[in-house]
């Protein structure tokens, strides 16, 4: 067989068409990424503009005022949200880590797979349905309470904490476990003294991201901790107010003052959520020594 004669390597009309098709597709994908980022920018900037204008120190230091009046705040909601999230975290953090430890360190492969599937399914259950569950368990009969709200939030947090924790347990080197076991440590001690301390950064990141998520959750609180007093309450036996529900109620209100308060509260909530989401990613990427994740 004789070799092909040297002919131009520039390609013909067909290749030009294929190139054009590829360039078109590449442009569309660039455009899609641009649109996705632009949506974030538009939403965040417009909330910042509206919220910053409505912001005042009263928001943090006062409780709501009657319909039509101005100068009220959401102090009780800020305190309530902090308490709800703290209670939920105190349930979900240990539970989530234990589930991850079980799935990754103890469970037989089949059981671990089942647990992971359950976590994924639980993460996908509509949060309002989680609220209904807690309503049937705790609220029916005895009424709403901060505990009920915190339990609902913790059910949403557990799969987030557990999945995040298992990701970091998976990257703890097997040699570390072996070294500990070779020194005669029990498996429990190995997990407590070697595996978890190595994974603690990742577990903290996962927990912070879960906090960011539930701090803005509204639906699970509707049936569990929504009928709260407009004064400051820290007793979880009674319903606790929350920032998310304040925004929800204000946004449904026909009162323009309420809208202003909603914008200001949304601004505070969004700044909090975005700041800790970005912060957690930065910490995680620094720990990984690489790029933003």
């Amino acid at each position: 067989m004789t070799g092909r004669e040297a002919s131009p390597l520039s390609g013909g009309a067909r290749l030009r068409r294929r190139r054009a098709a590829s360039a078109g597709a590449e442009l569309l994908s660039l455009l899609a990424a641009f649109v996705a980022v632009a949506v974030l920018v538009v939403v965040v900037v417009s909330i910042f503009l509206k919220g910053a204008g409505a912001l005042s120190v009263h928001l943090f230091t006062r409780t709501p005022v009657p319909f039509g009046e101005t100068g009220g705040g959401i102090e009780q909601a800020l305190i309530g949200t902090a308490e709800l999230v703290a209670l939920a975290t105190s349930i979900a953090l240990p539970a989530g880590v234990l589930v991850a430890v079980y799935a990754h360190e103890f469970a037989p492969a089949g059981v671990a797979r089942l647990v992971r599937l359950c976590l994924n399914v639980l993460a996908g259950v509509p949060t309002i349905v989680v609220g209904i569950l807690v309503f049937t368990l705790m609220v029916k009969g005895s009424g709403q309470s901060g505990w009920a709200g915190a339990l609902a939030l913790s059910i949403i947090m557990v799969p987030l904490v557990a999945r995040g924790s298992e990701e970091v347990l998976a990257v703890v080197p097997a040699t570390l476990r072996e070294a500990s076991l070779a020194l005669g440590a029990t498996r429990a001690r190995t997990v407590l003294r070697v595996v978890l301390p190595t994974a603690v950064g990742g577990i903290v990141t996962a927990t912070i991201l879960a906090v960011a998520r539930v701090a803005g959750e509204t639906a699970p609180l509707l049936f569990t901790s929504s009928i709260a007093a407009t004064t400051v309450n820290t007793d979880p036996q009674r319903p606790l107010a929350s920032v998310a529900l304040s925004i929800f109620a204000d946004s449904e209100s026909p009162d323009p003052h309420a809208h202003q308060e909603a914008w200001a509260a949304a601004f505070v909530l969004l700044v909090f959520v975005l700041a800790i989401s970005i912060g957690a990613r930065l910490v995680a990427s620094r720990a990984r020594g690489g790029r933003l994740r």
């Binding site: 990424a33 996705a36 980022v37 949506v39 974030l40 939403v43 965040v44 417009s46 909330i47 960011a212 998520r213 701090a215 803005g216 959750e217 509204t218 639906a219 998310a244 529900l245 925004i247 929800f248 946004s251 909603a262 914008w263 949304a266 909530l269 969004l270 959520v273 975005l274 989401s277 970005i278 990613r281 933003l292 994740r293």
Partner: peptide, 19 residues
């Protein structure tokens, strides 16, 4: 860019609803 796209998911739904 990836971080920005995924931050969209961090906006609380009640805030997005208000907007």
């Amino acid at each position: 860019i990836r971080t920005l796209v995924e931050l969209l998911a961090a906006i609380p739904s009640v805030v997005l609803g208000l907007w």
